[in-house]
Design a protein around this nucleic acid. Structure first.
Lengths: 250, 250
DNA sequence: GCGATCAGCGGCACG
DNA sequence: CGTGCCGTTGATCGC
């Protein structure tokens, strides 16, 4: 395909805010929050009508270079065909320099539907909150997702003794981050309430290091078995880890 | 475009492991780590030769549905054209059901180049380590990114008194997470070394809450001004926050 | 393979 | 707008 022919397509697509696809040999330069260079090779460029700009190699899920929506788009034809996406705040420039074009096409796309998704962390927390007694007898929920000044916690509950219990739900194997996050919430709450505050981490798994740290901090872990293969996610089981040592001596 | 014609293109692209583009009206179903549904609308589907499968709407940078490389791909033609990407471990299914096709194309892409990127957190840490004295007189680096049992620290140094100093570098405004991370490293090191361990957070900014927590924990903050607009990233300035209170009374 | 972390993270929700 | 955090996070690197 001639560069000039591609230029017509590109220029029209940008001004008409159509979906633009370009395949060809190009080098890519990015300068902004970071700087990157990508030497000559064949890639796919996508420009969406909201200004989203994507450069894809023929492997991997993630775009190799990109520029977020709402930027300024332009194109230029000399002995190469250049596509640019710029923005200020932060000041950034993405430049794709095509020396050869295999394909260029512009399309009108009608789509007003948005994704319905099930089995998120929020969904799991909601499910769990519906019957906290399966986690521990006497546990009653106060509120879900108290998104307050200092961070947030998934479930705020009280145990049968009336002590506050913070429950953090993770949809994946919990790591050190999850434990430090829970620890921080517990410490914050502890400071505010000046009561013994418990923290329970509910996740389908926990890493070795995370478990060590969790136990050292006096926090608790509960294995959360769930199935997210259907739109009504189900909790299949809750297996509480052996209680922390000090509880044996009460 | 006829569905049957598109089917030929798709089937050929999948078996020949070409880059495949399809635009058309479809609904999308996903079941696996979560479950999602996307009602009928016009979208772009990309299948890469490594098996990466992407469904894009005409807005936003991120794919609305996807499936990672190395999965199994298949297509089927009835009164609709169905593209499937499945995998086990975890067991997942992504299904795109086309009722209409606007465009389908298969391409051979040659690209063996990879991205060179500059201005990453690692780059900043390396730069900073080259002359720690600008951060504080007498500060000398021991090693970069010393790997401890739990997580990493960017720079391990000692101050003029010989006390260990852990330096965590962030390329963006630091939040609560950065502080808790540094805190954890400092605590771990403290436990191991049984010495007074200092922690310095270097970032272009810090959030209000993060600063409060940092100061309460006796950690230090240093504003890191840098310019990442060129491939040789430069540190423009380091502004140390006023030292913590207790140092005034030494 | 698991584990921990970064990412030009993106995207969303809330104050 | 900033702040915080989830994500079917993905991608990378060390073990």
């Amino acid at each position: 395909m001639q560069l000039s022919e591609a230029y017509e397509t590109v220029d029209h697509a940008l001004s008409a805010k159509k979906l633009l696809l370009v395949i060809g040999t190009c080098q890519v330069k990015y300068s902004g929050r970071a700087t990157s260079k990508l030497a000559k090779g064949d890639r796919l460029v996508i420009v969406k009508s909201d200004g989203s700009f994507l450069v894809h190699q023929n492997k991997g899920l993630a775009a190799i270079n990109y520029q977020p929506p709402k930027g300024r788009l332009s194109c230029e034809l000399n002995d190469t065909l250049i596509l640019r996406a710029t923005r200020k705040q932060p000041r950034e420039l993405l430049e794709v320099i095509f020396s050869k074009i295999s394909f260029a096409g512009a399309y009108t796309i009608n789509d007003d539907r948005s994704l319905q998704i099930f089995g998120t962390e929020k969904d799991l927390a909601k499910l769990l909150m519906q019957d906290l007694s399966v986690l521990e007898p006497g546990l009653t929920s106060t509120k879900q997702e108290s998104k307050s000044k200092r961070g947030f916690i998934d479930i705020f509950a009280r145990d049968k003794k009336g002590n506050p219990v913070l429950i953090e739900v993770k949809r994946r194997t919990a790591g050190l981050k999850a434990v430090t996050q829970l620890k921080r919430y517990v410490e914050e709450t502890n400071k505010r309430k000046n009561q013994e505050v418990r923290g329970i981490l509910c996740a389908p798994g926990i890493s070795k290091n995370a478990l060590i740290m969790l136990e050292r901090e006096g926090l608790e872990y509960c294995r959360l078995d769930y199935d997210a293969h259907t739109s009504d996610t189900k909790i299949k089981g809750l297996i509480k880890k052996q209680k922390r040592l000090k509880e044996f001596f009460v």
